[in-house]
């Protein structure tokens, strides 16, 4: 694989993941979380996300009215906690349903070529018999 192809793959993978970020973040905010804890939570479940991407995304989701946030001074240092609000919850439900559908479609699409090949083979075999 050439360097150019490797770079292209990196970019495509990044693009693919970027589309799932909002859904991933929303899915983990039923309970209030602050930035760092959310990052660790996502990382613990296998989703590595850049801090420089995650924190601004939280603020954007808040300004879009999907999250509520609150400063908490109960701990060693003040932390800003984010949590889904009612709008965020309904958006999450729609997005999750959309995701399930997408997964099914993608599975069908990705399995299709081999299935088609098998079918073709069958036809050829029939011909030779």
């Amino acid at each position: 694989m050439t360097k150019k192809t490797a770079e292209l793959i990196d970019n495509l993978v990044l693009e693919l993941r970027r589309g799932t970020l909002v859904l991933s973040v929303l899915s983990q905010l039923e309970q209030p979380q602050y930035g760092y804890s959310l990052m660790e939570c996502l990382a613990g479940k296998g989703l590595e996300i850049d801090q420089g991407t995650l924190y601004p995304l939280l603020r954007r989701l808040e300004s879009q009215g999907l999250l509520d946030s609150q400063w908490s001074v109960a701990e060693s240092r003040p932390r800003r906690y984010y949590v889904l609000n009612a709008d965020g919850r309904s958006v999450l439900a729609v997005m999750a349903a959309e995701w399930q559908q997408l997964v099914q479609v993608m599975q069908r699409l990705l399995q299709e070529p081999s299935a088609a090949e098998d079918e073709k083979k069958g036809v050829v075999d029939d011909g030779t018999d």
């Binding site: 602050y34 930035g35 760092y36 804890s37 801090q51 924190y55 603020r59 060693s76 240092r77 800003r80």
Partner: peptide, 23 residues
Amino acid sequence: DVEAELRSLLLDALEARAGATPA
């Protein structure tokens, strides 16, 4: 607001990195 949050987040990350180091 962003400055305060960023500072808090950076300190969280530092703390996690230092690990065993006393706070």
